[in-house]
């Protein structure tokens, strides 16, 4: 049973891997934006450092912020874009009439999302070390908690995006890459949470990423912000559960409306 399930998940992963293994532009595109963002913010941090009066902590906060925020963005896009790929190729009907269970489809998309994330992010992480001597892994084991929380937040947002795609079709595709990026100002990526004015800060407090980045800044000062990381984990569990329910509901509605037949049109 487990083996059959794993094979079906592999079938979906193989489908997406085939797209990338023969297309270098697709591979370059995965690494392009994370690398570009890292270069821009790295140079900004260097400029501020050279002006004097700014500690290396600022450079760390900016580069750590940009690289970790890319974790959430790439996890979200990796999942939503892989789903969109099925919509564009008008292949969803074949997928949904195969024995692939919905949870296996989600597991397959999560795997594809992680692979895309690693391929996209590792060159930027390596370049940050080479160009700016910034070592992301210097955060130590706590980095795993940052990483997991940001990936889960990306996946949770993807659940909502896929629900909207099932409801509104390919017309909602701009959400696949825009929705989480649009939350950037509220996620306290590059500045502390208290900088965000009220009442926007209330929304920020409800976003797991805000707490992850507070935790990241604490780690740069040598502290482990367990409270912030605990809050991020609890918020993630809540958002993931809520948006998974939205996805399940939209899938059921799509089966009633017949949207699975016409989604790519």
């Amino acid at each position: 049973m487990m083996r059959a399930s794993a094979r079906r998940i592999w079938g979906l992963v193989y489908r997406h891997a085939c797209l990338y293994r023969k297309s270098w532009p697709r591979l370059v595109e995965l690494a392009y934006w994370p690398t570009l963002e890292m270069l821009i913010w790295g140079l900004t941090a260097r400029f501020l450092y050279l002006r004097g009066g700014t500690a290396w902590l600022l450079a760390g906060a900016l580069l750590g912020g940009v690289l970790l925020w890319e974790v959430a963005l790439r996890a979200q896009m990796g999942m939503a874009m892989s789903f969109l790929e099925e919509v564009w190729s008008r292949n969803l009907a074949h997928i949904f009439i195969s024995p692939l269970r919905p949870f296996e489809m989600v597991a397959g998309l999560m795997t594809v999302s992680l692979l895309r994330l690693l391929v996209g992010l590792l060159p930027a992480v390596a370049l940050a070390y080479l160009l700016y001597a910034f070592n992301l892994f210097a955060f130590g084991p706590i980095l795993i908690l940052f990483f997991v929380n940001l990936v889960v937040m990306g996946w949770a947002v993807s659940f909502g995006v896929m629900g909207l795609l099932l409801r509104h079709g390919a017309g909602a595709e701009s959400l696949a890459w825009g929705v989480l990026a649009g939350l950037t100002p509220l996620c306290a990526v590059y500045y502390p949470l208290h900088v965000i004015p009220m009442p926007w800060r209330v929304i920020s407090l409800l976003l797991p990423a805000s707490h992850v980045f507070e935790g990241m800044r604490a780690a740069l000062h040598g502290r482990v912000a367990w409270r912030e990381l605990g809050l991020a984990t609890m918020l993630n569990a809540g958002w993931l559960g809520l948006l998974a329910l939205v996805l399940v509901r939209e899938f059921r509605i799509a089966r009633v409306r017949g949207a699975l037949l016409t989604l790519g049109e």
Partner: peptide, 9 residues
């Protein structure tokens, strides 16, 4: 065909 072969076991 390989993709669907895997999906159908």
């Amino acid at each position: 065909l390989r993709v669907y072969g895997h999906l159908y076991g």
